Simulated assay, not measured.
Amino acid sequence: MSTTRLLLLGIVRIFQPAYGYQLRRELLTWNVQDWANINPGSIYTGLRTLAKHGYLAEIEEGPDHRAGRTSYKLTADGETEFFSLLRQHLWTVDGFHPDRMQAALSFLYTLDRYEVLTALESRIEQIEAQLQAMPFNEQQIQQDPGTPNQVVEMLRIGAARNQGELQWTRDFRDRVATGDYSFAGEAPDWNPDPALIAEWRDRPTS
């Protein structure tokens, strides 16, 4: 749920004010239904839930466009929640939920370069520590007469994923350190296309 919440808050933040169908269409181009396990039909429900909890403001349109359509923008609480979730996902390594870091990657440009580099260094240290503990965790399983021997492979597949993420994190850190991408306080290297935003605004809902 925290990944879904971050994605919804983050995508609203990019395009706000934005309509539900616009946000749903954009998220589907990110293939969130595959890597974040988000049911496309639940996106509208998620937006309404965030509005109910005060993280989004619902804006009912008047006659200038189409009456009855609802657009969304972040509230002050939504902005706070967005950055809280983003930092939580960035700074915490969770091998069982890789979608959390994938969601964070979409919005790293909202943080400054120094914080991103510091967080990546922290992730490297966390993954290295998990890999160092691996032999001892294996030994504990193998010495426990009540645990089937093949359970150790659960640890090994996790370690293999950790090895891959460790290499990627080191490479990504180096790219960020040498100036790749744009972060908060720097000239942006990407902005939503105004023509596309206008097209979404004026597209019929049916």
Rank of each mutant, 00 (worst) to 15 (best):
A184G: 10
Y21N: 15
A18K: 03
A195D: 09
S182P: 08
E121P: 05
Y55W: 08
P188N: 09
L9A: 10
R170P: 02
P204E: 11
G158D: 14
I14R: 13
E128F: 02
Q139L: 09
R48P: 03
S84K: 05
M1A: 03
I59L: 15
H97Y: 10
I14D: 10
P204C: 07
A104T: 08
S71I: 03
G179Q: 09
G164L: 03
D180P: 01
Q22R: 10
L9K: 09
T45N: 14
R13Q: 13
P192I: 08
R175W: 01
Q16H: 02
P40S: 14
N137S: 07
L50H: 04
R25A: 15
H89Q: 13
F96L: 06
N137E: 13
Y19G: 15
D180I: 00
P148N: 05
K52V: 00
G179T: 06
G46F: 01
E138D: 11
L120H: 04
P63S: 10
P194G: 10
H97F: 07
M101H: 14
Y109L: 00
R100D: 07
Q143T: 11
Q167N: 11
A51M: 04
I38C: 06
R5S: 12
Y19N: 11
G41S: 13
F136A: 09
R175M: 01
N149C: 08
P194Y: 06
H65A: 15
I124Y: 02
R87E: 15
I14P: 01
E153G: 11
Q88H: 11
I38E: 05
A195Y: 01
I59A: 04
A36E: 08
F183Q: 11
